[in-house]
Every structure is written in structure tokens, then in C-alpha cells.
Amino acid sequence: MGEYTFIVSKTCPICGESTRIIKLKSRIIAEKTDEDFCVHYKGINPYFYHIWFCEHCGFAADEAHFLAPMASRHKQKIREFLEGRQLGLEFTEERGVPEAIASYKLALYYANLIDATLAHRAGLWLHLAWVYRAAGDEEHEREAMEKAAEMYDQSIMKEHYPQGNMTDNTAVYLIGAIYYRLGDDEKATQYLSRIIGDQNIRTMEPKTFDRARDLWQIIREKKEAAKS
């Protein structure tokens, strides 16, 4: 296939059909990383291919959730929704912005349908924001980031961590970083201060602590510069 991608076949957990999936080769070069962990790559945007979808029934999820065992009640709920509907996205070897956005919206719909964790849904919203960022669509990027921050905030209050590879402290940092990118320095500082005010985090999660401290310092210097 392409320089950066190849096609594999996977069995859809909902309809049981074999569907084509686009996977990325490992030789993708990262150029920079934004405060909210959005990585900018050279030559291709992997976030466009983050969601796997079945070209037959239309089920969509990220790789981990597509392949993970699913509760029978969740499968039944999705099958009932899909009955009589034709939602399969057209398979294309190269995804553009419209296809990427459609895939995330489908994945979010199914995640909401089966009441997936808030942390998982927040992550989908954040990835969708990154797709809008790549497209230069600031209005929809802001909407998606606001959703992500809101859901991460609910998650750290209601859910047990770690969630996947994310600790609760990483989630708190991420909320602060999202608000920073949204231009709300006051809210950003509130969340970042929760990290840098806890010396246990400095010991246990030094990378998260350092990120929070550095971003907090950037906001502080910006405020000082605005005064002068």
C-alpha cells in the first residue's frame, strides 16, 4: 500500500465479518508535541487512522476496544441499534479529514451507547480535537476540547484510576493543558497547581510534575508580561 500504511483483516466483534483495517508502519517521524499530548508527525497524521471501523455493519472503535472482549449485553445493544440500518463507512486506503471525523463520531456514538468509561470517551473527544486542529478548524476543535476537559473532570471524580495507561494525575494535568490551549489561564492554573502542590507526585510521577510545573511557569510569565 502506501509509504506509511498497510492493510490487515480483522474480525468485527459485532457482526463477525472479516473487515479491512488500515494500520500504520513504525517508521513515522514525530516533529513536535503540543501541551495536550497531540503529536505532529511528518508525512502522515496517524490520528486519522486511530479508529477502526467495520465496512460491513458500521461498528467503530479504537484498536484496543475493537479487539478487547466485549460484554454480551453491550454487543446485543449495538446489534439492536444496527438492525435495519446501514452505517458501514466506505473503505478507503487513504483517509482525509471528513473520513477521520466520521470515524470518531461513530466511535463516540457507540461508546455512549454502551456507557463506556468517561475517561475513554474523553480520550475520543480529545483525539477528535486533534483532527480538527490538523484541519485548521478552530471552532470545532474548541468544542471537542471543551467536551474532553469536561469528561476528564467528571472521570477523576467518579472513576477509579489508572484508566488504561493514564493515571488520575495525568488526567488532571491534561485538563489544565486543555484549558491553557482554550485560553482559560485561570482554570488551567487551578488544575496545574493541584499537581505542582503535591510533592508525592514529584516523586512518583516526575514527568507529569515537570510538565505541569513548566506549563504553570509559562502561564505565570505571560501574566507578568501582561502587567508590564
Rank of each mutant, 00 (worst) to 15 (best):
L182D: 06
R142D: 11
K42F: 02
E139W: 00
S155E: 11
G96I: 03
H40R: 09
R202L: 09
M204C: 11
E143D: 07
G176A: 09
E90I: 12
G176T: 07
T92L: 14
Y161K: 09
N165G: 08
E99A: 13
A129M: 04
L108P: 04
A134N: 08
Y152A: 03
T33W: 05
V8F: 00
R133S: 03
L106E: 12
Q76T: 03
S18F: 12
M166L: 13
Y47E: 15
I101K: 10
Y132A: 11
S155N: 12
L126P: 01
F91R: 09
D137E: 10
F59C: 05
R142M: 05
Y41A: 05
C54P: 05
P206I: 10
G58I: 01
H56T: 10
N112K: 11
T117H: 13
W125L: 09
K207R: 14
R27T: 01
E159H: 14
S193R: 12
I156C: 12
M145D: 08
K10A: 11
F81S: 00
V97Y: 15
L124D: 09
Y47N: 15
L126D: 00
A212D: 13
I219C: 10
A61Q: 08
V131T: 06
V97N: 06
Y152F: 13
A212I: 06
E143M: 03
L124M: 12
D34E: 05
Y180W: 07
K23V: 03
E83M: 04
Q86A: 14
G88C: 01
W216Q: 15
T208G: 10
A148T: 06
Q217A: 02
R27L: 01
D198F: 00
E186F: 03
Y161S: 08
G43C: 11
